[in-house]
Simulated assay, not measured.
Amino acid sequence: MKINPMQDEMQNIALEMRSLGRTETSQEVNQDFGTLLSSAIQKVNGLQKTSSDLAVRFDRGDRSLSLSDVMIASNKSSVAFEATVQTRNKLVEAYKELMNMPV
C-alpha cells in the first residue's frame, strides 16, 4: 500500500539517476524536478478526487462500498496532501535561505 506516492516517486527517480551515473546540466535538473513535482501534485489530486467520489457514492447508498473503503481512501488522500504541504514548506524555507545569502 503506497501511503506517500510523492516520496516513492522521488526515490525511484533518485535510484534511476544513480544507476545512469551521468551528470546533468542545471537545465535538465530543473526540467526533471518540474516534471516530478507536477506528476506528484497530479497524483495527490487524483487521490483527493477518488476519495471524494467514494464518499459521495457511499452517501448515496452504494452497496458495493464499505465504510472502511471510504475511510482508507480518505486517509490516503489526507496523508498525500500533508506530504505535499510539507514539501512546499521545505521548498519555501530553502528559497528564503538562498535569498538571504550574501553574494
Rank of each mutant, 00 (worst) to 15 (best):
M1D: 13
K2V: 15
I3N: 13
I3T: 15
P5D: 00
Q7D: 09
Q7M: 09
D8L: 11
M10E: 06
M10D: 03
Q11K: 12
I13P: 01
A14H: 06
L15T: 10
L15D: 14
E16I: 03
M17C: 04
R18F: 11
G21A: 03
R22L: 10
T23F: 12
T23N: 13
E24M: 15
E24R: 15
S26P: 09
Q27A: 14
E28V: 02
E28A: 02
V29F: 04
N30F: 13
N30I: 14
Q31K: 11
F33H: 04
F33S: 08
G34W: 00
G34E: 02
T35R: 15
L37H: 05
S38N: 14
S39G: 04
I41H: 12
I41N: 08
K43Q: 08
V44F: 02
N45C: 11
N45L: 13
N45P: 06
G46N: 09
G46V: 06
G46P: 04
Q48R: 11
Q48N: 12
K49P: 04
K49W: 07
S51M: 00
S51W: 00
S52N: 13
S52D: 12
A55S: 06
V56T: 08
F58M: 03
F58K: 06
D59V: 06
D59A: 14
R60E: 10
G61F: 01
D62R: 01
D62P: 01
D62I: 00
R63A: 15
S66H: 04
S68C: 05
D69C: 02
M71G: 03
I72S: 06
N75A: 14
N75V: 14
K76N: 05
S78A: 12
V79Q: 04
V79M: 07
V79S: 04
F81K: 11
E82C: 10
V85S: 05
V85C: 04
T87P: 02
K90W: 11
L91W: 01
L91A: 03
E93H: 08
Y95E: 10
K96T: 11
E97C: 07
L98A: 09
N100T: 11
M101H: 12
P102S: 09
